[in-house]
Simulated assay, not measured.
Amino acid sequence: MNRLQMDPIIHTALIEDLGAGDVTTDALASETEQSKVTLLVKQSGVVAGMPVAKRTFQLLDDNVIFTPLCTDGDQVEAGTPIAHISGTTRALLSGERVALNFMQRMSGIASETRKIVDLVEGLGCAVLDTRKTTPGLRPFEKYAVRMGGGVNHRYGLSHGAMLKDNHIAMAGSIAEAVHRVRARNGHMVNIEVEADTLEQVKEIVNLEVDAILLDNMDIATLKEAVTWIDGRVWTEASGGLTPETVRAVAQTGVDAISLGWLTHSAPALDISLDWGTS
């Protein structure tokens, strides 16, 4: 991430929270009063979002000193301090909630991603996210997936063509849909096609496509599909995957698994800002 990505999102969140001002903090602290705080992880997990937290405070006070004690992607235990922060009291208190909201959300996603990555370790199967992200927060949430050891699927609709059931129904057939997309976009745009059945798999591998999404298939069907494809195109399994099922799915030989809940349903990691402990 860079400031061109971060600043507009953080600005929006700060304006939403601060409005015309922090009536509590502004009544208690002068403009020049200085304080020190510590970011503390209160449950075990993977840290993500340190640059976002730092930038949140520095947008309120460009003299804030943010000293990280770990790096995004680090696995930490409950009770671990992860950053010391010093600056104006107003900036630290007024930015607290926004910084924590971002870090808790991102660290939760990174932590859940790491769990899945660990479950499929050694199988050569990538763990992918999807576009099921919080509107406006996609850069942060996809970054968090990477910090958890996952791999980003396409960022948006312009980053590769994916033909799903509604596209195919609209075009009239898989072959016609692939033909139209390839004709319009040329060879530089990858095409992935969703398959629900083995019959569709057998049709798709003979078309000019780069990947097949094997959607909601049971283990036996996945194994047969991977055998039939025989490495001719890249394979992705998706649909209803859980921590209990991901390893068995990965063992079928698919190149990747994708899980929408990594970004849309990951629980926040508990992180606090403790006063005067830096």
Rank of each mutant, 00 (worst) to 15 (best):
G150Y: 11
V151I: 14
N152E: 08
H153I: 00
R154V: 06
R154W: 04
R154Y: 06
Y155P: 01
Y155T: 13
L157C: 01
S158T: 14
S158M: 04
H159S: 14
G160W: 08
G160R: 10
G160F: 01
K164Q: 12
K164L: 09
K164F: 07
N166C: 08
N166R: 09
H167E: 11
I168Q: 01
M170D: 00
M170E: 08
A171T: 10
G172F: 05
A175L: 00
E176W: 00
E176V: 06
A177D: 05
A177K: 05
V178Q: 06
V178I: 13
V178C: 09
V178Y: 09
H179R: 15
R180Q: 14
V181Q: 09
R182Q: 11
R182V: 04
R182N: 11
A183K: 15
N185M: 08
G186F: 03
G186D: 02
G186L: 05
H187T: 06
M188S: 13
V189F: 01
I191E: 06
E192M: 11
E192Y: 03
E192G: 14
E192R: 07
V193I: 10
E194V: 07
E194C: 03
A195G: 05
A195F: 01
D196W: 00
D196V: 00
D196N: 09
D196T: 09
T197K: 02
E199I: 07
E199V: 13
Q200A: 12
Q200C: 02
Q200D: 04
Q200E: 15
Q200W: 01
V201M: 03
V201S: 10
E203G: 02
E203Y: 02
I204V: 15
I204L: 06
V205T: 14
V205W: 10
V205M: 13
V205D: 10
L207E: 12
L207Y: 06
E208F: 01
E208Y: 02
E208C: 04
V209N: 02
D210T: 06
I212R: 00
L213G: 12
L213F: 11
L214D: 07
L214Q: 06
D215V: 02
N216W: 00
M217Q: 08
M217I: 10
D218F: 01
I219K: 07
I219G: 00
I219E: 07
A220E: 15
A220Q: 13
A220W: 00
T221A: 13
L222V: 13
E224R: 14
A225K: 05
V226K: 10
V226Q: 11
V226N: 06
T227Y: 10
T227N: 15
W228L: 15
I229W: 04
G231V: 12
R232F: 02
W234N: 06
T235I: 12
T235Q: 05
T235V: 12
